[in-house]
């Protein structure tokens, strides 16, 4: 045997990947995240809001959302309260007990926002996670089975896509009464088809890649290829979509609340707070501005985070 295999002395990328493997992958991701200020601020906002939501019961009195009666003396003048009590002074933001002011029921607006956050985030997470689970399962089945099953799943998603979300919510509320669970279901019903479509298209694209064929040629079974290779490779865009959707669901849900689907007039949901404040917007704009701002910041945080994850997972950056 005269031939020898040449040693390969140089590897172009080994300089910064010397102790290679998963750890350096994560390090590289963190580097990419640090390099992008938007991602950083997005994650601060998103993680911050989750933290506040988790600790809300400790930060503020969990019962402070309830109607304060008799209303505190320095609360803002409101005709309904006026009917009971004269001489209630307006209560704008900046006072020591009420940094963001108080609302029409004499409640501390800051406390209300802090108590509203966990409600919104819980609902949003449960909708997105359920939609994600249904979407990945159905999408994978549709893409991999193909043929009639694929067609059936697609048509079902079409039907649900065609549902007008608002009308559905109206009907459900009319039938089952005002209830947060019912409203969550109403949003979920119009939300999950997107994930089926997305997962399906991702898997279809991934299925055609040469490595899937290479595995088939190697003798790997269909399920092995699907679960160990194709799904893990096609899941990233779906995760990105889910992160983006957390903000989106919060917006949708607060819109529903704003439109008057709130179960109880006192629910400290962010959209409901805006809706409560809207009738006094000319005299007390902060009642609309602060809860609105809270919605925007949370949604923005998750959107930026989602965009950042997409950038970091971008294969062009990865190579």
């Amino acid at each position: 045997m005269t031939q020898r295999v040449e040693e390969v002395p140089f590897e172009p990328r080994s300089v910064y990947r010397r102790r290679s493997g998963r750890i350096s992958e994560i390090k590289y991701s963190l580097y990419l995240a640090r390099k992008n200020p938007l991602v950083l601020s997005g994650s601060v906002l998103a993680i911050g809001s989750i933290l506040i939501a988790a600790l809300s019961g400790i930060i503020v009195d969990p019962r402070s959302w309830a109607f304060q009666y008799p209303p505190r003396y320095y609360c803002w003048n409101n005709p309904w309260i006026n009917w009971h009590l004269q001489n209630i002074k307006p209560c704008p933001p900046g006072t020591p007990f009420y940094p963001l002011g108080a609302d029409a029921f004499g409640r501390n607006l800051l406390n209300m926002i802090i108590l509203g956050l966990p409600i919104d985030l819980q609902i949003s997470f449960s909708i997105v996670i359920s939609a994600f689970a249904i979407g990945v399962a159905l999408g994978a089945v549709a893409a991999y089975a193909g043929g009639l099953i694929d067609e059936a799943v697609l048509r079902i998603t079409d039907v649900f896509f065609a549902f007008p979300g608002l009308v559905l919510a109206l009907v459900l509320v009319a039938v089952f009464g005002r209830n947060l669970t019912i409203l969550t279901l109403a949003v979920l019903v119009v939300w999950w088809p997107l994930y089926v479509r997305l997962t399906r298209s991702q898997i279809l694209a991934e299925k055609e890649k040469p490595y899937a064929e290479a595995l088939k040629a190697m003798g790997a079974g269909r399920l092995r290829i699907l679960f160990l290779h194709i799904i893990p490779n096609s899941i990233y865009p779906v995760i990105v979509q889910a992160t983006l959707d957390i903000g989106g669901v919060i917006l949708t849900f607060s819109s529903l609340m704003f439109l008057g689907f709130a179960p109880s007039p006192l629910t400290p949901e962010l959209g409901k707070l805006v809706s409560d404040g809207i009738s006094f917007v000319s005299q007390a704009p902060w009642l609309v501005i602060f809860p609105g701002l809270a919605i925007v910041l949370v949604a923005l945080g998750f959107n930026l985070l989602g965009d950042g994850i997409r950038d970091i997972l971008d294969p062009r950056l990865r190579r």
Partner: peptide, 15 residues
């Protein structure tokens, strides 16, 4: 009969 390539590969141009 045999190809005689230069052994190794292109150097890393960072160093």
């Amino acid at each position: 009969e045999n190809l005689e390539p230069v052994p190794g590969s292109v150097p890393d141009l960072i160093n």
